Simulated scan of single mutants.
Amino acid sequence: MTDSALWISALTAGTAVLASWVTSRGTARAAQIQAVAAEKTQRTIRINEARRNAYVSLIEQAHRMAELYWTVSDIHRTGGTRSEQLPALKEVQAGLREGYGKLRHFIWVINLEGPDDVAEAAETLRLATRPPYQALEAAVAGEPNALDAFDQCYDPFWASVLAFVSTARAAVHDL
């Protein structure tokens, strides 16, 4: 009788060890799956935040540049002689140069973070800053009607800002 008790206890112990091993393997695998899922979620959150911050920064910078464009239009509307307008126009021109550097930085970040359609919209926005700046340069250089040409450049610039906002919004909501 002791032989069968010994066999039963050995079988029970072996079964317990095997069950424990199977359970620990399943638990370890479940923990690994959960860790990978948490890592993917965190990475997605970081990407979303980086993209959103880049998009917002570009939009804010575009607004700052638009304010400078409005200043040029205000200078033009107030009239005055060229010599009276020139210092203010040069000041705005310097502000636009500085603003363009920041705008370009944000566009590089967006090119890095993606997606491609948002990067393309950002590049379109960047290109839309050229005509107003060239018209402002012409005004500073004394070309007649340059400020009138400048005013004609504002709407295409603003349209590119709105297009970027729309594209960025879609990209943020698709993530």
Rank of each mutant, 00 (worst) to 15 (best):
96 L>S: 10
48 N>G: 07
72 V>I: 12
23 T>C: 03
2 T>N: 09
142 G>K: 06
55 Y>H: 07
57 S>F: 05
112 L>F: 09
71 T>R: 15
87 P>A: 05
37 A>P: 01
162 L>W: 06
25 R>I: 04
69 Y>V: 00
106 F>V: 03
32 Q>P: 00
71 T>L: 15
149 A>Q: 06
154 Y>G: 02
76 H>D: 01
17 V>F: 14
93 Q>N: 13
38 A>M: 09
7 W>A: 13
56 V>L: 13
159 A>I: 07
36 V>T: 14
94 A>T: 06
37 A>V: 01
76 H>A: 03
24 S>R: 14
126 R>E: 13
60 E>R: 11
118 V>S: 00
81 T>C: 01
30 A>H: 14
9 S>D: 06
31 A>R: 15
158 W>E: 02
2 T>M: 08
135 A>M: 01
50 A>D: 15
164 F>I: 04
11 L>S: 13
40 K>H: 15
111 N>Q: 14
80 G>N: 02
104 R>D: 13
77 R>C: 00
138 A>P: 02
34 Q>T: 10
112 L>Y: 07
154 Y>F: 04
34 Q>R: 15
95 G>F: 00
165 V>Y: 07
150 F>Q: 02
108 W>C: 05
169 R>W: 05
135 A>W: 00
155 D>M: 05
172 V>Q: 11
80 G>D: 01
125 L>S: 03
78 T>A: 15
47 I>C: 01
22 V>S: 12
134 Q>I: 02
10 A>Y: 07
70 W>C: 10
43 R>V: 08
117 D>W: 04
88 A>Y: 01
126 R>Q: 12
93 Q>S: 14
171 A>K: 00
86 L>K: 12
145 N>H: 10
102 K>P: 02
28 A>G: 10
156 P>M: 08
77 R>L: 00
127 L>Q: 13
120 E>K: 13
166 S>E: 15
33 I>A: 15
93 Q>G: 10
90 K>A: 05
129 T>D: 09
13 A>D: 07
124 T>K: 15
175 L>Q: 12
66 A>E: 14
43 R>I: 09
100 Y>L: 11
133 Y>N: 08
43 R>A: 13
133 Y>G: 06
87 P>S: 09
58 L>P: 01
139 A>P: 10
8 I>T: 10
35 A>I: 07
96 L>P: 13
7 W>L: 14
68 L>T: 00
166 S>M: 06
36 V>Y: 09
80 G>K: 02
84 E>D: 12
145 N>D: 14
89 L>M: 15
173 H>R: 12
160 S>W: 07
155 D>W: 05
162 L>G: 04
82 R>F: 03
9 S>I: 05
112 L>M: 10
69 Y>W: 08
5 A>M: 10
26 G>A: 07
44 T>A: 14
139 A>Q: 05
40 K>W: 12
48 N>R: 14
14 G>I: 03
152 Q>L: 10
155 D>A: 11
16 A>W: 06
48 N>A: 12
26 G>W: 11
143 E>C: 03
47 I>D: 12
44 T>E: 14
7 W>G: 08
64 R>Q: 11
38 A>N: 11
150 F>S: 04
29 R>I: 03
158 W>N: 13
135 A>L: 00
8 I>N: 06
27 T>L: 14
